[in-house]
């Protein structure tokens, strides 16, 4: 195994563990109540996930991928409203994206 890759993985992995675990100890109680920090933390979840939705779809927003993207996002929305299941919405969205990509490539 490459030493370079192993060292890189260890540096990033240790940082990830510190990022994920550290704040659960350091800020214990700091996020409770109705203060500014509590409001900030309450908004963090939706903000983080919304950011990741945009960041992951932005590279797909080009001319060749826009139709599959619209179909994929549409399928996720429809399936979520219909079934309220993260798994069904995710898999259905991916399927719609794949099939639209295939159809677009075939025409």
């Amino acid at each position: 195994m490459s030493q370079h890759i192993l060292i890189l993985a260890l540096m990033v992995g240790i940082a990830n563990w510190v990022f994920r675990y550290g704040p659960t100890r350091l800020s214990r109680g700091a996020g409770q109540g109705a203060g500014a920090l509590a409001r900030f933390l309450s908004a963090t979840g939706p903000a983080a996930i919304a950011t990741l939705v945009v960041a992951s779809t932005l590279p797909m927003a080009n001319a060749t991928q826009v139709l599959p993207l619209v179909m994929g996002v549409g399928a996720v929305l429809v399936l979520w409203v219909w079934r309220r299941s993260v798994m069904i919405a995710t898999l259905g969205g991916a399927l719609a994206y794949a099939l639209t990509t295939f159809a677009a490539a075939s025409t």
């Binding site: 779809t57 996002v73 929305l77 993260v86 969205g93 994206y97 490539a105």
Partner: peptide
């Protein structure tokens, strides 16, 4: 397997979007 490849490429965005809807 280009269709599978395409589906896999959208799996992560679909998962993020579903999670967003679940806490919306």
């Amino acid at each position: 397997w280009p269709v599978v490849q395409a589906g896999l490429s959208f799996m992560l965005p679909a998962l993020f979007l579903s999670l967003l809807l679940s806490i919306l």
